[in-house]
């Protein structure tokens, strides 16, 4: 019977190993967040949020960075939401069997796997140089919009797929056209799922650094952007810049800025998860 006992020991040993692994990543993250809070929390005050960048760490603030992030968030949303939702609607509701749709579908799966820095190279050549946007907010927003487009498209399709057929039939049965059915029934019914996907995609855009470095977003911008053609910086850029400086004061600044960035990311993800749960409950009619 020793073999049997041995098997049982291995079995429960793995259970604890599994639990350990499951929490490992989360514990490491918790340690890190604790570290960041210990280092950066004392640095966050009104001045930090409203000061322009400075060469002296104690005077430097993140005003240009967080306003830049807000600009990028807004512009990226304006560009990517209509395009992404429209493409998702096309693929799910119109392009069920045509060749174009199946090419687009394979293509989207491929785009989703392209590293973000490659989008930076695309943005650099197309938006910064060819279209002459320079290292502006607009160039950054277009680049990030292309980056998150696949996420929004896939989320839109999933949400539309979950809308029951009976709803479409009811609308067609009333003499509604295809577009009327989509606009009045299918899209509103899928809106919760689509919104969840949009928020997750935008939260991804807020955290991106690499493509913006490539298109030439600046680490040091001494003014607050007032229009889409202005040069800009964003929170992740500011953090990256401070991290690479030797003085400890800047590391503290970076920690403080990370707290703000994580707060934004977690709030967006929290909203998305909340919406997803709410919507999933509702969808079972």
């Amino acid at each position: 019977m020793t073999k049997l006992n041995q098997n049982r020991i291995i079995d429960s040993a793995f259970k604890y190993f599994g639990i350990f692994c499951t929490f490992f990543g989360l514990i490491v993250l918790a340690i890190f967040i604790f570290n960041i809070l210990a280092e950066g929390l004392q640095r966050i005050d009104w001045d930090f949020l409203t000061n322009l960048p400075s060469r002296r760490p104690a005077k430097a603030g993140i005003l240009t960075a967080w306003t830049g992030t807000a600009w990028i968030l807004g512009l990226t949303a304006i560009i990517s939401i209509p395009l992404g939702v429209a493409a998702g609607v096309y693929l799910e509701e119109y392009g069920k069997k045509n060749r174009l749709a199946s090419i687009i579908e394979i293509n989207i799966a491929n785009l989703a796997g392209v590293p973000s820095i490659i989008y930076g190279l695309l943005g650099l050549e197309i938006f910064v140089r060819t279209l002459n946007f320079g290292g502006s907010l607009l160039a950054g927003a277009f680049t990030l919009a292309l980056l998150i487009l696949p996420i929004i498209i896939v989320a839109t399709r999933e949400a539309l797929k979950a809308v029951p057929k009976s709803l479409r039939e009811a609308s067609f049965g009333m003499g509604a056209t295809k577009w009327q059915t989509i606009w009045y029934q299918t899209l509103p019914a899928a809106s919760g799922g689509i919104l969840t996907g949009i928020i997750l995609a935008l939260s991804r855009a807020v955290g991106e650094t690499a493509p913006l470095i490539v298109i030439g977003a600046l680490a040091y911008v001494p003014f607050v952007a007032t229009n889409p053609m202005d040069e800009f910086t964003v929170l992740p850029m500011q953090i990256f810049n401070w991290v690479s400086r030797p003085q400890h004061g800047f590391v503290v600044n970076a920690a403080a800025a990370i707290i703000i960035l994580l707060l934004i990311t977690f709030i967006m993800n929290g909203i998305a998860i909340y919406l997803r749960n709410k919507w999933q409950k509702k969808v079972n009619w």
């Binding site: 049965g173 009333m174 509604a176 509103p188």
Partner: peptide, 29 residues
Amino acid sequence: LRQKVGMVFQKPNPFPKTIFENVAYGLKI
């Protein structure tokens, strides 16, 4: 044609909207 020839389905399939919106839908479109 479908405005002339209405249809009622096997499973009740009201839109996830108000009663008023449901009944007014055909006229609104």
